[in-house]
Design a protein around this nucleic acid. Structure first.
Length: 914
RNA sequence: GCGGAGGUGGCGGAAUGGCAGACGCGCUGGACUUAGGAUCCAGUGGGUAAAACCGUGCGGGUUCGAGUCCCGCCCUCCGCACCA
């Protein structure tokens, strides 16, 4: 495409003009009591430069915000920075290692922010910068710390020793949610979500947030959100919370000194029960299949089960060694690693446990397939559970069938081959024999409860959230460790606990703050003794769990926010973000909001009324694999390689992937803005497809939208004389058919845009409609032979000119949310005085949306055979008549008897003939 | 295995149960040009001389009429996955 500087030029002009009259962009232009709308796109991590991953949601929310403003809303559309975090720290570490001076995560962060903010401004986004928040500034993280204290007061934040996921590369711990399964060379492993390194388990003292106590409410809340949140997100959260209803059954384990796991697994003779130091201890197991409880043939406990230590003290040396080795080996894997392994292994403890339902004594194993979920112990029913079946076969343990297929079912039971896991009817189950599974579960649960041997319980997969990070660039945890008083919270008046600047942040595996000379030295607020500050910082997901509330009162120095102000805007009417945050951020944010709701600071229990998950803009990568090389290349480099014969087309692997630097498949939106203008890029992003689906950036994608903007602008300039200073239309001035049709098109555009902005945001179809209108206008001008200025009120072309002028007006106003610069430019070129952004959204004239004459399809036996033109209000009889008169229809009906005539007024005629 | 999304021209994508392929890219032809990777005009699912006919992953069904609704499959992508 040739150089055309007009877009960048007039865009700069209008951006400057808007900056002058900035209060238009403030969130509260209209007086209180008016309609409020809070639209929010997830704030970015300041990674350095804006990329398409940002441009899509910001363009979308900007268009929506502008649309809402034109409709008279006060719109809150803020922007801020998720500014703490590892990438800046890692980049600083790299820079230090390269020998650079004066590098600091803070500086890199603020530099990134400055760059990205100016890039956003170049896009013409109408963010309310007055409310900008930075999570890394003390005026913000003071309140993150305050929240932590509030949670601590209520026992929601607590400290415990825990096995955590440790990333050896980032040198910090990760939350469960931040560990993902990856595959390399066919092997699955557990990886850090950030850098991809394999995580290792570690035992560590850490702070946890008790999200599990909100599990049920978080789950319940999803029901209300279901209507306005993507199923994709709610179902993932439901899955993650993982509620399961079942029954706890208290087995009684007999701890016997000198027990041995070797040899045959026979319970000891009953006479020894009272002597020889037998201790009975309760061992509850959790099951969702209480109906199979009479089929238990052994118990299995997790290697980290607390009972393991007790057992170790009692068993003989051989069993002891086997157990210790097994537990050690298993615990050396991460929990998820263990889960992905396919071999079920275990060690017999030599202990036996009594089934409270039938008195059976069954052996107890420690097994690698049992997780510390539920009670960390399972009753194994090989006949009716695949995992137990597998284990039982491996170790030749007995199976006992207690459920038979329901009468009339064709299911077969073949326990040698596999477990029978379907529900059915109980057999060999004492008093419960003959009951269907569902009823048996309920009865057994009730029975156990009555006998105080367990009962119905609910379990969750969700675990508490470990938030301690052994890194520097994060929010300090406002806690003090006193040798006398233990853990003491920093008094509120001493907040914030400021993150010092002068810290050696090179990774050592210990928190960098421990190396700072003065940070950790502090007097205990309770007793005044020498104490030590907590030197860990918080997971950055904590920072981002409440930022949407801070926007409602961004500069409050006295409180986290004014509940009144929060109440005005919250909940967020529309929250736009990527699917990758379906569980992490979105569940944490809901949790925090619920906590604040419980404190009485927030009215609505849910923070986001509507969530919109946008797709990814991906790029095509080119990877060349030959004997000499295996790497990603740019399009240019590929061309060179092919031209010089260093690679053949067969060596090239093209893939659609998420844009990334290493894959050389990214496009820089800001560079495109410089070349084609912000409006062209904005329009292209929205035109590529519905925003919720992924799409691929192709370098030619911008051509259509760019072309459209130019045609519209050209048309406006060349048509200005046709539509300027038109006289009033007299009462006898009638529009001809072409004008009526054109007017229908322009008013349809208003309607279409309104529908999409109020509904599903398929803005690509709105843009298509606008393109169509420009095409129609051009054709109209040519067909009507419009030229030169309008002479006077009796000029016969007046009605057509008036229609055309209205089209320009509608086009500028409906497109203003999408392409504000071009809309403004065109608006002024055609004599607009105020800013088009300040004009109200156009109202569609219902009269214009009704056509006098329509063209309708006529089918014969369901196949299209012709069309008829007729007045829109034509009755059925007219439609029938015209349809049957149609030449082509006649041809197909000929020689057949008309059996039926389907006539749908305004839609279709279908002739059924045999 | 479980959960979610999806499968429509060469491509991105349109279609309240009612003319499949809007709009755009690309392509073909033409116009204007010293030139065209600019602009404008026309055409563009397959098929045919023109029709007929065939076309929305596959197979059934409901209906006057199905891309759309129902039943049964196949495939792709995403998330979760020994959760008892």
């Amino acid at each position: 495409m040739s150089e055309d500087r007009r877009f960048p030029d007039y865009e700069a002009k209008w951006q400057a003009a808007w900056a002058e009259s900035r209060n238009r962009k403030a969130s509260e232009v209209h007086s209180k009591g008016d309609k409020d709308f809070y639209v929010l796109s997830m704030f970015p991590y300041p990674s350095g430069r804006l990329h398409f991953g940002h441009a899509l949601p910001y363009t979308l929310t900007d268009a929506i915000a502008r649309y809402k403003r034109m409709n008279g809303y006060n719109v809150l559309n803020p922007m801020g920075w998720d500014a703490f975090g590892l990438p800046a720290e890692n980049a600083a570490i790299e820079a230090v290692r390269r020998g650079e001076k004066n590098v600091h995560p803070a500086r890199m962060t603020y530099d990134s922010i400055a760059t990205m903010r100016s890039q956003m401004n170049a896009f013409g986004y109408s963010f309310d910068w007055e409310r900008e928040v930075y999570t890394c500034k003390p005026d913000y993280y003071k309140w993150t710390q305050w929240l932590f204290l509030k949670m601590h007061e209520r026992g929601v934040a607590y400290r415990k020793k825990a096995r955590v996921n440790w990333c050896p590369d980032c040198k910090t711990t990760l939350a469960n949610e931040q560990v993902e399964t990856r595959v390399k060379d066919g092997d699955e492993y557990q990886a850090c979500f950030r850098c991809g390194s394999a995580v290792e388990p570690r035992e560590i003292d850490a702070w946890f947030l008790g999200i599990t106590r909100y599990a049920d409410r978080l789950l319940q809340g999803l029901q209300d959100l279901a209507q306005h949140w993507p199923e994709l997100v709610t179902s993932q959260q439901r899955n993650w919370i993982g509620r399961s209803e079942g029954v706890n059954i208290d087995f009684a384990i007999e701890l016997r000194a000198g027990a041995s796991g070797s040899g045959p697994l026979k319970p000891p003779a009953p006479e020894g029960t009272e002597s020889s130091g037998v201790q009975r201890e309760k061992l509850p197991v959790f099951t969702t299949r209480a109906d199979t409880a009479f089929g238990v043939t052994f118990l299995a406990i997790a290697p980290e089960h607390p009972l393991v230590d007790k057992i170790l003290k009692l068993v003989d040396t051989r069993t002891h060694k086997r157990l210790v080795d097994f537990v050690k080996e298993t615990l050396n894997m991460t929990e998820q690693d263990r889960a992905s392994g396919d071999e079920k292994e275990g060690v017999a403890t030599g202990m036996f446990a009594v089934n409270p339902l039938n008195g059976d004594k069954v052996p107890v194993f420690v097994a690698n397939y049992v997780l510390m979920y539920g009670t960390g112990a399972v009753m194994a029913v090989p006949a009716h559970d695949e995992r137990d079946h597998e284990f039982a076969r491996e170790y030749r343990l007995p199976m006992k069938q207690v459920v038979a297929p329901a009468p009339g079912s064709e299911e077969q039971v073949d326990l040698k081959a596999q477990a029978f896991t379907a529900p059915g009817v109980l057999i060999d189950s004492g008093a419960f024999t003959g009951l269907p599974s569902a009823e048996a579960m309920a009865r057994i649960g009730a029975d156990l409860k009555a006998r105080s041997a367990g009962g119905p319980v609910v379990n969750y997969k969700l675990r508490d959230w470990g938030v301690s990070r052994q890194r520097y660039w994060g929010c300090p945890i406002p806690m003090i460790h006193c040798p006398q008083c233990g853990v003491v919270p920093v008094p509120e008046k001493d907040l914030p606990v400021t993150l010092p600047d002068d810290v050696d942040f090179l990774p050592t595996g210990r928190s960098p703050l421990t190396l700072h000379p003065s940070f950790q030295h502090v007097k205990c607020p309770a007793c005044g003794a020498e104490a030590r500050r907590d030197t860990d910082t918080m997971d950055t997901f904590v920072d981002s769990s409440w930022y949407f509330l801070r926007y409602t009162d961004a500069h409050n120095a006295k409180a986290i926010f004014d509940p009144q102000k929060a109440a005005r805007w919250m909940p967020v009417d529309l929250y736009v973000g990527g699917r990758e945050h379906a569980i992490l951020h979105l569940i944490y944010a809901r949790f925090f909001n619920m906590f604040l709701h419980d404190l009485g600071l927030v009215q609505a229990p849910e923070p986001f009324s509507r969530m919109y998950a946008h797709g990814l803009i991906q790029g095509e990568s080119r990877r060349v694999v030959t004997d000499e090389m295996d790497r990603y290349v740019t399009e240019e480099e590929l061309k060179r390689l092919l031209d010089t014969g260093k690679a053949t087309p067969e060596d090239v692997v093209r893939r659609i992937e998420k844009m990334s630097k290493s894959k050389l498949n990214g496009a820089d939106p800001t560079q495109l803005v410089a070349q084609y203008g912000a409006d062209a890029v904005r329009l292209t992003i929205l035109f590529m497809g519905p925003a919720e689906s992924d799409s691929v950036w192709e370098k030619d994608a911008i051509k259509g939208p760019y072309h459209f903007l130019r045609r519209w602008h050209d048309l406006a300039l060349s048509s200005a004389p046709l539509v300027e200073d038109l006289p009033e239309m007299g009462p006898d001035c009638r529009m001809n058919a072409a004008a009526t049709k054109l007017r229908f098109a322009s008013h349809s555009l208003i309607e279409k845009a309104r529908t999409e902005f109020e509904g599903r945001f398929a803005l690509n179809t709105v843009i298509a409609k606008a393109m169509e209108l420009v095409n129609d206008m051009r054709a109209f001008i040519a067909a009507e032979n419009l030229a030169g200025p309008c002479k006077n009120a009796s000029d016969p072309s007046l009605a057509s000119r008036w229609t055309l002028a209205e089209c320009f007006d509608i086009l500028a106003r409906t497109m203003a949310p999408f392409v504000p610069h071009t809309a403004e430019e065109v608006w002024h070129a055609l004599g607009g005085k105020q800013s088009v952004l300040d004009t109200p959204w156009p109202a569609a004239d219902p009269a214009a949306l009704v056509l006098d004459e329509v063209e309708l399809p006529v089918q014969v036996n369901g196949k299209l055979r012709g069309t008829i033109k007729l007045p829109a209000k034509a009755d059925k009889a007219t439609m029938e008549k015209l349809a049957l008169e149609n030449e082509n229809v006649k041809k197909f009906v000929e020689g057949k008897a008309i059996q039926k005539l389907i006539v749908v007024p305004g839609k279709i005629v279908n002739v059924v003939a045999k």
